[in-house]
Simulated assay, not measured.
Amino acid sequence: MKNRAFTGTAASGRPLVVGHRGNSGTSPENTTVAFARARASGADMIETDVRLTADGELFLFHDGTGARTTNIAQVYPDRADDPITSFTAAELRRLDAGGYFGEEFKGEPIVFLNELPDAVGSGLGVNLELKAPADSPGVEQAVAAALAGPEWTQLREHHPVTVSSFDPAAVRTFAGISPQVPAWQLVEEVPDAELLAEGAGYAQGIVASHVSLTPDSAAAVRAAGLGLWVYTVNSPADMDAVLALGVDAVITDFPDTLIARLASGPEASR
């Protein structure tokens, strides 16, 4: 049974502002500095990606390899293109996950899930995307166990903590293990009414690409009794378009820009 207590919107009734991989438009994604900047911007939540290391630790990382966002080619030149999940936690802790973005961020480490409550402090909710669950067998159970810990329980008392995935089986599995934590289904396109009805049995809502979302598909999500979040919305025009659809949350690389749109309304751009 899904958790109906969390509506998926801010207490004020406006959509939640969710920093994509932190404040990744201005800082290296999925790092403590990105999370701190999201908090400073006034975001309600951050979205981040979670995987399992080869020795079973949960870490925050988007890509399937470390080539784009770390110095893995220098540290492990013979393994630069290996799956990031083939590395142990100790090996990942040797990597620089900030220097690719700019010299000022050099030395930012990969963040592990047990470090995230301290990284977000008391001011942010968290959406954890189970990234490529097939590459991290057992990640649903590991995340559920982690979120049952005292630091996460305390965070959940004051801020939304949710889990999402593009993999319906992973969402269903997690929801069955941890029904007290809202689970959301990520999609590129809103599915048909039959699949929406099926998803309503275990998911709190749909997290859809803003590129494919239409008034009709947004209405279909609502008709199924599901919440509606949207990703990854970066331009002011796209922000105005999804806000007009009445979504519950907007995931963006630029939370400060979205907050300004919410404060001023689309009239400010005219």
Rank of each mutant, 00 (worst) to 15 (best):
L92V: 09
R51N: 03
D216F: 01
I206R: 13
G66K: 00
A90V: 14
E157S: 10
Q154G: 03
I177C: 01
G25N: 02
A38P: 01
S209V: 10
A268K: 07
I206N: 09
T214E: 10
R21S: 08
F87A: 14
A67G: 05
V190W: 10
G246K: 15
L116C: 05
E189W: 04
G227S: 15
Q185I: 05
G13I: 08
M45P: 05
G176I: 13
V230E: 07
R37M: 11
L58E: 01
Y76S: 00
Q204G: 15
S12P: 04
I206F: 14
D78C: 02
L213V: 15
S264P: 00
E194F: 08
Q141V: 08
A54K: 15
F112E: 07
F166Y: 14
W152Y: 11
A5D: 15
A193G: 08
I206S: 10
D78R: 11
T85P: 11
G8E: 01
A183N: 07
L196F: 06
S27T: 13
A260M: 01
H20K: 08
P179R: 00
D55L: 04
R222A: 13
R156V: 05
I259F: 09
P77K: 00
R37A: 05
S122I: 01
A67R: 14
S269D: 14
D253G: 06
E103H: 14
E29D: 07
F174W: 03
A119I: 02
G99Q: 08
D248P: 04
D82Y: 04
A260D: 08
E189K: 14
V181C: 05
W184D: 07
A11I: 13
S165V: 04
V211T: 14
G22E: 02
S178V: 01
R4G: 01
R14T: 11
L16F: 06
